[in-house]
Simulated scan of single mutants.
Amino acid sequence: MSQKSLTEIGAPVRHFTLQLSATRRGARLARLLTERQLDEWGEPCDAAAQVMAELASNAVLHGRVRGRDFRLALKLYADRTLRVEVTDARGDRPPRLPGPAPDDAEGGRGLRIVSAYAHRWGVVEAPAHGKTVWAELSLGGRHLPGNAV
C-alpha cells in the first residue's frame, strides 16, 4: 500500500489552532488542549497528546524568544491522518534527532518519542524567522514505522 502525501489527500476536515505563551504552563496546556480537542472530535489519541507535549516542550526550551508565543495546530484529514504542528520563533534552531545517548542523559529524548509515535515528522520555515515542527500520526489503527522527513 503506497503512502499518500497530505497534498494528495486534500484539505483537513477538522482544524484547531491556538496560540499559547512560551512557558512551561503553555506547554502543559498544549497537551491538555490536544487531548480535549481530539476527544471532542471523537478521536482520543494518547500518542498525539504525547507528541504535542514533546513538540510544545521543545518550543518552550529551544524555540523561545522573549515576548513571543508559540502556536499549536491540529489538522485531521479524511483518511484519519492527524497532523500536529508547533510553530515557534526560533527558525535558526532547527530540531535534529540526536545520536545515541547514555540512559542517564537529560536531553534528546523528545524527538525520539516523536519518531516512535509519528509515521512522519519534519520542520519547515515559518513567518517572522520562525519554524514549524510537524508530525503526522495515523488514527486509523495502522502504525507505520517512524522516520524523519
Rank of each mutant, 00 (worst) to 15 (best):
P102W: 01
Y117Q: 09
A128C: 06
P145T: 15
A22K: 08
T81S: 03
N58L: 08
W41Q: 00
R14S: 13
G110K: 04
V114H: 04
L38Y: 04
H129M: 10
L72F: 00
A30K: 04
T34A: 07
D104C: 02
F16G: 00
T23I: 07
L72R: 02
P102N: 04
A118T: 03
K75M: 15
H143Y: 01
N58E: 14
H129N: 11
P127C: 05
R14V: 05
L76D: 01
R66Y: 08
A78V: 12
R109Q: 13
D103S: 10
D39L: 12
D69K: 11
V13L: 04
S2W: 05
E43W: 10
V65T: 09
A89P: 08
R93A: 11
D88K: 08
G146S: 10
R142L: 14
A116T: 12
A135Q: 05
M52D: 08
T23N: 12
E8L: 10
R24N: 12
V123N: 15
H62Y: 15
D103F: 05
A59T: 05
G91C: 07
W134K: 11
Q19T: 13
E136D: 15
S2H: 12
N147M: 14
P95F: 06
K4M: 13
V84E: 03
L61Y: 14
D104S: 04
A30F: 00
R36N: 10
T23W: 07
G42T: 09
D103P: 11
A49K: 00
L20P: 00
R28H: 06
A56H: 01
L97S: 02
D103Y: 09
R64P: 02
T34N: 08
H62A: 04
S21C: 03
Q37R: 07
A73L: 11
A89L: 06
A30C: 12
A22H: 09
P44W: 02
D69S: 12
G146Q: 04
A105C: 09
L139V: 13
R96A: 11
R24E: 12
E136G: 10
A118R: 01
L72Y: 00
V114L: 03
A128T: 11
V86D: 08
V65I: 07
F70R: 14
E136K: 09
H15K: 08
V60I: 10
